[in-house]
Amino acid sequence: MEPLHDAHPHGLAADLNTLAQRALARRGVLRWLAAGAALAGPMALIGCGGGGDADVGDSSSDSGDTSGDTGGDTGSCSVIPSETSGPYPADGTNRNSGGTVNALAMTGIVRRDITTSFGDHGDNVAEGVPLTVTLKLVNTASSCANLAGYAVYLWHCDRGGNYSLYSSDAADENYLRGVQISDSNGEVSFTTIFPACYSGRWPHIHFEVYASEAEATSGNNAVKTSQLALPSAACQQVYGVASGYDASVSNFAQVSLSSDNVFSDDSAALQLATVDGSVSAGFTATLTVGVSG
Score class of each variant (00 low, 15 high):
132 T>C: 00
39 L>M: 08
284 T>G: 01
210 Y>W: 01
152 V>C: 01
10 H>Y: 14
160 G>P: 02
3 P>D: 07
159 R>K: 12
151 A>K: 03
171 A>D: 09
290 G>Q: 02
212 S>D: 08
86 G>E: 05
221 N>V: 01
162 N>M: 10
132 T>Y: 00
286 T>L: 03
168 S>K: 06
286 T>F: 05
9 P>E: 11
98 G>A: 15
89 P>I: 02
284 T>W: 00
105 A>G: 06
223 V>N: 01
156 H>I: 04
172 D>G: 12
284 T>I: 01
242 A>W: 04
19 L>V: 13
22 R>G: 08
31 R>L: 14
143 S>M: 13
163 Y>L: 04
23 A>I: 13
228 L>W: 09
165 L>A: 03
233 A>Y: 07
26 R>W: 09
185 N>C: 11
209 V>T: 13
44 A>Q: 14
77 C>S: 13
33 L>N: 11
18 T>P: 00
125 V>I: 14
227 Q>Y: 03
161 G>T: 04
272 L>C: 13
88 Y>T: 07
293 G>M: 09
281 A>E: 15
49 G>D: 14
213 E>S: 13
206 H>Q: 07
178 G>Q: 06
233 A>G: 03
175 Y>N: 13
103 A>I: 01
136 K>T: 12
170 A>K: 09
227 Q>F: 02
124 N>R: 15
202 W>A: 07
224 K>S: 12
113 D>K: 10
64 G>T: 05
197 C>K: 09
167 S>T: 09
251 N>C: 02
80 I>Q: 11
216 A>S: 12
19 L>A: 15
179 V>W: 05
167 S>P: 07
53 D>P: 03
210 Y>A: 03
278 S>R: 09
22 R>P: 00
110 V>Y: 08
110 V>E: 14
102 N>H: 10
249 V>H: 11
46 I>D: 06
98 G>F: 11
232 S>A: 13
66 T>E: 13
293 G>N: 13
284 T>F: 00
111 R>C: 00
235 C>E: 03
226 S>I: 05
146 N>W: 07
8 H>M: 07
228 L>E: 02
139 N>I: 05
201 R>F: 15
72 G>L: 08
57 G>K: 02
45 L>K: 13
152 V>K: 01
129 V>A: 05
293 G>H: 04
16 L>I: 14
216 A>W: 09
38 A>S: 15
168 S>T: 08
216 A>E: 12
12 L>K: 12
108 G>V: 06
172 D>L: 08
90 A>W: 10
86 G>L: 07
